[in-house]
Simulated scan of single mutants.
Amino acid sequence: MAYPYDSTVAEAIKRAGLPKSHRVHWSDQRKSDVVRAVRDEVITFDEARRRYLLSRSEFRTWEDKVDGHRARELA
């Protein structure tokens, strides 16, 4: 479990400032926030997939974009 035992997924998502559901405009910032939340173990990948209706390939695309942006910042 990526969140404290006495917490819920919904509370973790709210604390992280993530969208409540897939029914939002998916800006690059929101995508980046979800990728970071999964990587930082705020939520699990499976929780993100269910809540945001993501396929594995779509999430990988989001990760690639985040990683590409980060690489450009470091260059």
Rank of each mutant, 00 (worst) to 15 (best):
R36S: 13
Y3N: 04
S21Q: 06
D40H: 10
D67N: 14
T61E: 10
S55F: 07
R60N: 13
K20D: 13
S21F: 06
E47M: 06
S32T: 12
E63K: 08
L18V: 02
M1A: 11
D40C: 09
M1R: 10
A2S: 13
I13M: 10
A16Q: 03
E63R: 08
D67T: 09
R15T: 13
D46Y: 10
Y52N: 01
T8P: 02
W26D: 00
V9H: 05
S27M: 05
F59H: 02
G68F: 07
E58I: 07
K20M: 10
V38T: 04
L18R: 02
D33A: 12
E58R: 14
A12H: 04
P19V: 04
F59R: 01
Y3A: 05
R56W: 07
A2D: 07
K20T: 09
L54T: 00
H25N: 13
Y5S: 11
R15L: 13
E63N: 05
K20A: 15
D67P: 03
L53M: 14
D6K: 15
V34G: 01
S7T: 13
F59D: 01
D6G: 08
R70S: 14
E73Q: 14
V42L: 03
R51W: 05
E11R: 09
E73H: 13
A10Y: 09
F45H: 01
I43F: 05
R23L: 14
S27G: 06
P19W: 06
W62F: 11
D64I: 08
D67M: 12
A37W: 02
R15V: 14
S57E: 13
F59M: 00
R49F: 01
A37C: 05
M1T: 09
V9G: 06
Y3I: 05
R51F: 04
Y5W: 12
R50G: 09
A2C: 11
R70Y: 08
S27Y: 06
G17R: 03
K65S: 12
V24A: 03
S55I: 02
E41K: 15
S21N: 13
L74P: 00
R23P: 05
R15G: 08
A71E: 15
I43P: 01
W62G: 01
P4H: 10
S7Y: 11
A16C: 04
P4C: 05
M1S: 12
L53D: 15
T8I: 08
A71W: 06
R15I: 10
E63D: 02
R39Y: 04
R15M: 12
D67I: 08
D64Q: 13
D33T: 00
S32D: 11
F59L: 03
A2V: 15
K65D: 11
G17S: 06
E11K: 09
D64F: 09
V35K: 01
